[in-house]
Design a protein around this nucleic acid. Structure first.
Length: 140
DNA sequence: GCCAACGTTGGC
DNA sequence: GCCAACGTTGGC
């Protein structure tokens, strides 16, 4: 299983809204960046992703799961190459992990979230995943 | 609201 | 194919 991190402004699409969509999930639309798109296409059904709230909150709010692999983005214009995956909310972190906390931890300073702060779909290593889960009060 | 970082576009 | 200009993102 691979791990990812996806970013959303909670004013536009929050983790709470994601959870309300239930098990069927919801297309993750609006990615308009080639690096992010490349990551989207690498996602496999069952992979997990951190749901990060950018701008407002600046924290990892929960965990999502890919329920459908990449297919053409229905919100893209004709002939544009963008794709989406379907994502469902799995669980909220009992203790959301803030960007500040991630920056403070030397083991997390290489996270893409810190180094490539503008990338909206990023890979997460297994070590990073486990540590952030621990910090967030998630057991697994 | 500012600004740094960085991706994209377009002129040459 | 380089690079300047421009637009967007996102932290502060």
């Amino acid at each position: 299983m691979a791990y990812w991190l996806i970013k959303s402004e909670p004013d536009v699409w929050s983790f709470e809204m994601q959870m309300k969509k239930g098990a069927k999930g919801e297309p993750w639309t609006g990615v308009r960046n080639f690096t992010a798109r490349a990551n989207l296409t690498k996602m496999r059904k069952g992979d997990h992703a951190f749901f990060y709230h950018s701008n407002v909150g600046k924290e990892i709010a929960g965990i999502a799961e890919i329920v459908k692999e990449a297919y053409p983005d229905p919100t893209a214009k004709k002939d544009e190459p963008w794709v989406v995956v379907d994502m469902r909310g799995v669980e909220a972190l009992p203790k959301p992990v803030t960007l500040e906390a991630i920056k403070k931890d030397p083991k997390l300073k290489d996270m893409a979230l810190v180094k490539y702060s503008r990338l909206s779909v990023q890979p997460v290593t297994e070590a990073e995943w486990k540590l952030v889960c621990k910090m967030g009060g998630v057991k697994s």
